[in-house]
Design a binder for these strands. Structure first.
Lengths: 217, 217
DNA sequence: TAGATTGTTAATCGATTAACAATC
DNA sequence: TAGATTGTTAATCGATTAACAATC
């Protein structure tokens, strides 16, 4: 029961981008937008944009286009941003703190309930009204507090262990910043931000930049 | 002259991953690996791995496999990691500092030469032996110091302006953390890390997780 | 109504996988 | 030599684009 449409990864990656541009249009006070106008802004073909949106429903009006406010709301709903999430950050080093502040600053439903670390020097500290707790309490805390998402900012060596605790505690998803591909059971969503991979891809692109386009200088 | 093979983005994204696993094998002292063994570890098909590698050359030996050390070196070379890069970080807030420390810690050829900000309170500060300078000096500094890569950690509103200065100064690539799609001329490589997009994709995945796999509990 | 633009099907393109000959 | 595994071509699959009928 429940036929899975199974949305492709390519589409999943484009959805937040649609959201970003629609949010921008909204702040500009734009009321209506066509797939062609979106195409010009975002860079995807109008055809692809219509295909993507129609994966989830009929949000437009023939001969008119899409209402910006409505489409923005729909995409938020599709992305699951019409609710709040309870999160914890594990590993409160530079990156962990940056992510904590970042999430705090751009807060749109991802609430950091707890911070965890193994370093006794920072356990007990408070960051943005949240206390840093001992990692040994992680699983219990996640379970008791009904945490939805664990954010992993520990080093590679400890990342899988932390993930296991989070999963045991019952998180539904993990946002991973450790440079390792975590193993998670079915039913747990995993999204990794591999910063060094990203930097290495940039390095590749620099090296393989078309030298032709470089000519005028 | 110079027929462009034009490596697909899909391959570019896999290369750093190959590197990561080969590095891991190397630390384990493994000398030899086959495409099948790699497949099991990384999760790509053996066929794809061989295809990918053969885009750049013949690195293996029939009937034997690949020498780990050699392949690791080759991939480093392909990625352009056989040289050093001079970088600057613009925007020394939480994220900028985290990236600075991160890059400093995992230093493998990406040297941060200068830090820039507009906030008078932190201009003049030193982080990891690098001084925070005024953004007004950015373009001049980039040109004089021959900076290769600019790392943008400012907010969305100022990101394009910073990018323009970096490009005017002559950077070859930009690593962008601002939540905006920067416009850059041909010949300048751009790699963006859209943290909120990543988080939103995670949210989507959590929402659309196969409920079947959830059944046993 | 005529013009515009969506929703959707069909065609194309590119990326992945399978197969196997080459060869170590 | 026989067995193994690459390099590479051919087949398949999936994603993107084009086209157009539906309809506002």
């Amino acid at each position: 029961m429940g036929n899975k449409p199974k949305v492709s990864n390519a589409i999943i990656r484009r959805l937040p981008r649609y959201r970003r541009y629609l949010g921008y249009l909204q702040t500009k006070g734009v009321k209506k937008v066509s797939s062609n106008e979106l195409s010009e802004m975002i860079g995807y073909t109008a055809s692809q944009i219509r295909q993507d949106l129609n994966t989830f429903g009929e949000f437009g009006q023939q001969g008119y286009g899409y209402e910006v406010d409505k489409l923005y709301k729909e995409i938020n709903r599709i992305l699951g941003l019409d609710r709040e999430y309870r999160t914890v950050v594990v590993g409160v080093g530079n990156l962990g703190q940056a992510i904590t502040n970042y999430t705090y600053y751009y807060k749109i439903g991802f609430n950091i309930m707890g911070l965890f670390d193994v370093n006794p020097k920072i356990i007990g500290n408070w960051i943005n009204d949240v206390e840093v707790m001992d990692c040994s309490r992680l699983e219990e805390y996640v379970r008791k507090e009904g945490i939805d998402i664990g954010i992993i900012c520990v080093n590679r060596e400890n990342a899988q262990e932390v993930a296991d605790s989070l999963i045991e505690g019952g998180v539904k998803g993990i946002w991973n910043f450790a440079p390792i591909d975590l193993v998670v059971p079915e039913g747990v969503a995993i999204e990794s931000v591999h910063l060094s991979d990203s930097l290495h891809a940039l390095s590749f692109m620099i090296k393989n930049m078309d030298p032709e386009s470089d000519r005028n200088r």
